[in-house]
């Protein structure tokens, strides 16, 4: 089921397994620093999904699904909820919808914490969910 046609490669498989943690950590790094340096939820999400897409190619879609553990569509929904809640926090704390709220906490590398950061995390998950839904669905062979 779901093998990359005529391209079974042990090397690719091994390399992917080594690369995956690196890619995922890198994607989270891109996400978190995105507010102050190149990066952000879109790029981070794409890099993270590339990691799983590589796994789907080198091994199989099923292996990639199992490694992700969560159904990608749920990831997408979760991301949408997080992004929406970031907007709602602005509304509920007396401002308008999607008005930024900054509690005043500052961390190294990431910078100040606030609802835009939360929103970016939502974007991250939507992009991951979207990309993997598409990749897994299209790469799944029906025969």
């Amino acid at each position: 089921m779901a093998r990359w046609p005529e391209m079974e490669s042990v090397i690719l498989s091994r390399a992917t397994r080594l690369m995956m943690p690196v890619l995922i950590v890198f994607s989270v790094f891109l996400l978190l620093r995105g507010h102050n340096a190149p990066g952000g939820g879109f790029v981070g999400g794409l890099i993270a999904s590339t990691a799983f897409a590589l796994l789907a190619i080198s091994d199989s879609v099923d292996v990639a699904r199992q490694t992700l553990r969560i159904e990608p569509r749920r990831v997408m929904g979760f991301g949408l909820l997080v992004a929406l809640s970031a907007g709602l926090i602005g509304l509920l704390s007396g401002g308008s919808f999607f008005e930024g709220v900054w509690p005043g906490i500052k961390l190294p590398v990431i910078g100040k914490l606030g609802t835009p950061m939360l929103f970016d995390i939502g974007v991250f998950f939507v992009v991951v969910g979207f990309t993997l839904t598409v990749v897994f669905t299209l790469l799944t062979e029906e025969d």
Binding site: G34, H35, P38, G39, G40, F42, P116, F119, D120, V123
Partner: peptide, 12 residues
């Protein structure tokens, strides 16, 4: 409150 203007436009 962000240095990356593109990102600030997108998320804020």
């Amino acid at each position: 409150k962000g240095h990356n203007v593109v990102n600030v436009i997108l998320v804020d």
